[in-house]
Design a protein around this nucleic acid. Structure first.
Lengths: 233, 233
DNA sequence: AAACTCGGAGAACAGTTGTTAACTGCATGG
DNA sequence: CCATGCAGTTAACAACTGTTCTCCGAGTTT
């Protein structure tokens, strides 16, 4: 902050530009609460901000371009948070509550961002769909990489770890979407935790056949061709 | 066409009406391949069919109303098919392949319907969102009811069965969406089957603590407060 | 201090949108 | 056989859209 302001700090112009750019993003996000990106008009956004329609072009080519920028804004900062949460917890109940708490906090803090991601993940704008898909794939890789470091991952193929990680990531998105659709978030969070427990149980018994311990009692009458669950050729 | 139709069957005009109605639904579905429902214009649909814009009002109030009709068309006939598939298979590998095959066949036969459901499940039109949510909740109830009949469901609470069923239903939608995004469906189907195997494993060990058999070896060093997984108060 | 950059404003364009109104023709039920 | 119902048409409306071109004025550079 210094002497308040003795010079027109180099970049005062650029600061104003990013200020209106951010205003455009905010306004768009707000408007997207009740419609999809493919119906979001350029003029609609500029009108909400209070600038001329043509000013839009100084920042984005079209609304699809703005959508891609929103994807980065919504998910970009989440990578470190998610990895840190996983790294700080082991495979157990502690991790389950931490993961669900993370999603609940995110949805509460940035509901518009969460809604945007859930909505446009399968939305009508290809570029945005691919941007979100890329981010989620990245999340899955990071989660899988974290899983690989843990002792429970012994014997797991890389593909199976990635498959498991994708289930966790997809489950997070579904939980976020479910949270947005209700005002009483407790039952939704509870269900999410139980679902994660189911996934954890599945993970723990994924390699059971190789341990040659019990298991055969679980097969019971439905004993069928459930061989090994590996993926490698 | 030939004799076989000597009388103007009572309802000849009504037949024509439902014919154009179906044409509107088909045209809309085709247009929705590359946009969301909230951006689908009334005139756009009538133009594709070749009727006057005002003819639209004879069948639907607005495009949102048309969307609700599309939900019924897309999912209505699937209930019996799904329940029959589950009833014909036991809890095992056989059911997993049958379920995945069902989704693959559906996506291959009605790709536009599948895309519509995946897209508008979280889309910008509230009425359609709720219609899809209702249908999926119904699916989950039906799946849970089928599960309840099976011996593997012994000891399960109703809420836990519903939770499990929801995971299966959500997984089906996710798989359908993944299939639509690729031209090589084999790896996607394979991943879906492995994910279902994980869920099946989780299901089989959900009540393990009460069986007091092994388990403690799985807990190992990360032995934490993973008590019982019940839901009832 | 002059020259330049560039975010934004303004006006105008050709198209499009949803919705209303009055109309036509035909299958229908009396 | 005639009158009614109703799917679909035609015409017109005010409002809105994305995009182009021209211009302004303040920040930046030389």
């Amino acid at each position: 902050m210094s002497h308040t302001l003795d010079g027109p700090a180099p970049g005062a112009r650029q600061a104003q530009k990013q200020k209106t750019r951010q205003a455009l993003l905010d306004a768009a996000l707000h408007l997207l609460a009740e419609q999809s990106l493919s119906s979001l008009g350029l003029r609609e956004v500029t009108r909400a901000v209070g600038v001329a329609p043509t000013a839009f072009y100084r920042h984005f080519r079209d609304t699809a371009d703005l959508g891609v920028a929103l994807v980065e804004e919504a998910l970009g900062s989440l990578h470190t948070t998610l990895v840190a949460t996983l790294a700080a917890t082991g495979d157990g109940e502690e991790r389950i509550t931490a993961a669900v708490d993370l999603i609940v906090a995110y949805v509460r803090t940035y509901p518009a961002h969460a809604r945007f991601i859930a909505r446009e993940q399968h939305g009508g704008v290809k570029a945005v769909r691919e941007a979100i898909g890329g981010q989620l794939a990245l999340f899955a890789e990071e989660v899988a990489a974290q899983f690989a470091k843990e002792p429970e991952a012994a014997g797991w193929s890389e593909a199976d770890l990635l498959m498991l990680a994708r289930m966790y990531v997809d489950h997070m998105v579904m939980t976020a979407s479910a949270l947005l659709g209700t005002d009483d978030e407790e039952p939704v969070a509870d269900r999410a935790r139980r679902q994660l427990r189911l996934l954890t149980l599945g993970r723990r018994h994924w390699l059971d056949e190789t341990v040659d311990e019990t298991v055969d009692k679980a097969a019971g009458e439905t004993a069928d061709k459930s061989g090994r669950y590996s993926t490698e050729p």
